[in-house]
């Protein structure tokens, strides 16, 4: 994604906006899918985020903060879905998932949303601690502390699930 494209999109150039949305669609969809664990909800969130980005990009102040801005919108939409469903979103593990991947996915979905989102933002999207603090509007210290406990909880849930599936290792 080029900075130039974002600048052109900000100016309202139709082709640039469309190109930007097409480029970002898979990234947003994948993030929402992994967070919500449900393809239909992930599609809804993606549509909503793209719509908001297309409508509001002209007001984006920092071009360099585009991805942080997009993920702030994404997190907001995901939380709305989460609130609406009152945590009753069934997890759908991708059918193509391998054994380890399936268990890791299930372990991720046993974590509370605030731990899940921070793992995805860091491990999958590769945002820095500072960027995550901006996306979630929390202090950097809180990001680090949440990451610490989220990673430990992920490992713990994974080991529990593995033990349930295959028994305690000898």
């Amino acid at each position: 994604m080029s900075k130039e494209m974002i600048i052109r999109a900000r100016k309202g150039e139709r082709k640039a906006v469309e190109a930007l949305l097409r480029e970002w669609q898979p990234r947003i969809y994948n993030f929402a899918l992994k967070h919500l664990g449900n393809p239909d909800d992930a599609s809804d969130v993606t549509q909503q985020v793209l719509f908001t980005v297309s409508r509001k990009i002209s007001g984006l102040r920092e071009v360099g903060a585009f991805s942080v801005w997009v993920f702030s919108i994404t997190m907001n939409e995901i939380r709305k879905v989460w609130e609406e469903r009152r945590r009753e979103i069934p997890l759908q593990v991708p059918s193509s998932a391998g054994e380890r991947e399936g268990l890791a996915f299930a372990a991720l979905h046993l974590l509370p949303p605030h731990q899940r989102e921070i793992i995805l933002l860091k491990e999958v999207e590769g945002f820095s601690i500072k960027e995550i603090a901006r996306i979630l509007s929390i202090p950097e210290g809180t990001v680090k502390s949440r990451l610490f406990y989220a990673l430990k909880a992920l490992r713990e849930q994974y080991l529990k699930l593995k033990e349930e599936a295959y028994g305690r290792p000898q």
Binding site: Q25, P26, L33, P94, S96
Partner: peptide, 11 residues
């Protein structure tokens, strides 16, 4: 472990 979550799924 978390690295397996990076796999991309077709949108």
């Amino acid at each position: 472990l978390a690295s397996v979550l990076r796999k991309k799924y077709p949108s």
